[in-house]
Simulated assay, not measured.
Amino acid sequence: MHILFLGSIIDKIENHEREVLAIDTSIHLTADRLPLVRDIGWNRIDSVYTHPDRILDYDVFLYVINGRMQVIEEGKEYIVREKEHLFLKKGLHHWGLPETLPGTAWYWVHFNTVVDERVAYKEHLPLPELGYFYPKHYEYRFMMPKNGSSSLHQTMESRLRTILDNYHKVRDHWMTRSSLQIYQLFLDLHQAALKHEETSETGGKADTIAGRVMTYLVQHADRDFDSRELSSQLQLNYSYLSSTYKRLTGQSIIEVHTKLRMNKAMDMMRSTSMNISEISERLGYKNPYYFSRVFKKVLGEAPSSYLRHFYKS
């Protein structure tokens, strides 16, 4: 009987742990919407601190400048140490035990993420292969690093102090200015986290391969793509290169190469007096009609139509 009772308790604990692991606590931002600041502040405690037990309808960013803070979110404990941050997601239960040390000081930002539910946001950042941007290019989202530190944290305190000082200066569009500054800070934090992942032992090899492929494509954007030449230069199997690149960037090697060629075509249209046939030949397209079809497929308009956007003597 006791064994059955103990087994039932263990099953309940394991089920609870699985439920906690299944909860998505990550914070995502999008490229087409600002995180809207609700309020910003700074705090320092002189006695043992207990984090309030609550469920909020906004997201939270914490940055500890002295001491350490303990926070539990949906059963998972975080110890945020000096020069570390933590994001807390709205709608989730978080609290703390009386374990935050006296002398602990931190900055906090309360904000709301705004998402257009009609948009199917991409999960990959766009590659820097195009010289123009339509609204659809901004339809991607990115996940913020939940907790930890990075190279950016060395200047985090001074940046947050400046933002907080500006926040208290009431002026035109002050709330929008604060949201812009926080968004810039979050973008830099995301970039710093990406660089850390690229230099880590686990992810560095694959990310380096993606970078080498991109370098090759940029250097060979004025001619037809040759998979055998790429494979030979990188000394790796093309199937492996192709699948790795697609997984990391969300685009195929052929797609990116084609976009790079169209980017070169646009540069020539803007900066030279060459006609469409000459540009087509310069980029390795033997048939200008085929070049025009590819251009329209990538950009949504014919090259003759695109040329009319520019003033030329």
Rank of each mutant, 00 (worst) to 15 (best):
H110D: 09
L130A: 12
Y121K: 10
P98F: 05
R141D: 11
V80L: 00
A105Y: 03
L101Q: 09
Y138C: 11
H85T: 12
V114T: 14
L92G: 10
E82Y: 03
M69C: 05
K76M: 12
G96R: 02
Q70K: 04
H124V: 02
G75Q: 09
V80H: 02
Y140L: 00
N112G: 08
K90N: 12
R118W: 08
G96M: 05
L125K: 14
L127R: 08
G75D: 06
E82P: 03
Y134L: 14
T113I: 07
E74Y: 06
I79L: 11
E73Q: 15
G103R: 14
Y134M: 15
E82F: 00
I79E: 10
V71C: 03
P128F: 06
F133M: 10
D116H: 06
K83T: 07
T104D: 01
Y132S: 15
V71Y: 06
K90M: 10
K136H: 14
H137W: 06
Y78G: 01
F111P: 03
K136E: 15
R118M: 12
T104F: 04
P126S: 06
V115E: 14
V114Q: 14
L92E: 10
L97H: 12
L88W: 05
V115Q: 12
H124Y: 13
L125C: 04
R118P: 02
R141F: 02
L127A: 02
E139I: 01
Q70T: 07
R68Y: 15
R81D: 14
Y78W: 06
Y140E: 02
E84W: 01
V115Y: 14
W108H: 14
I72T: 14
V80P: 00
P128Q: 05
E117A: 12
Y138Q: 13
Y140K: 04
K89H: 07
R118Y: 10
K76P: 00
K76V: 11
L92Q: 15
E77S: 09
E139N: 08
D116N: 15
F133R: 15
Y134S: 08
E117I: 09
W106D: 00
E129A: 09
R68N: 13
E123R: 09
L92F: 10
L88H: 06
R81K: 15
H94L: 05
W106I: 04
V114N: 15
E117C: 03
W95G: 01
H85C: 07
P128E: 06
G103Q: 11
W95F: 10
N112W: 05
D116F: 00
I79Q: 11
L86H: 02
K76N: 09
Y138K: 15
R141Y: 02
E129I: 07
L127D: 07
R141V: 01
K83A: 04
A120Y: 12
Y121F: 03
Q70H: 11
G75R: 08
T104K: 03
K76C: 02
E77H: 12
K136C: 03
E77D: 09
E99A: 04
V80E: 02
T113L: 01
E84Q: 10
I79A: 08
L101V: 13
V109E: 00
P126H: 06
K122A: 09
L86R: 01
H85W: 11
L97N: 13
A105P: 05
H124W: 13
L101R: 12
E82W: 07
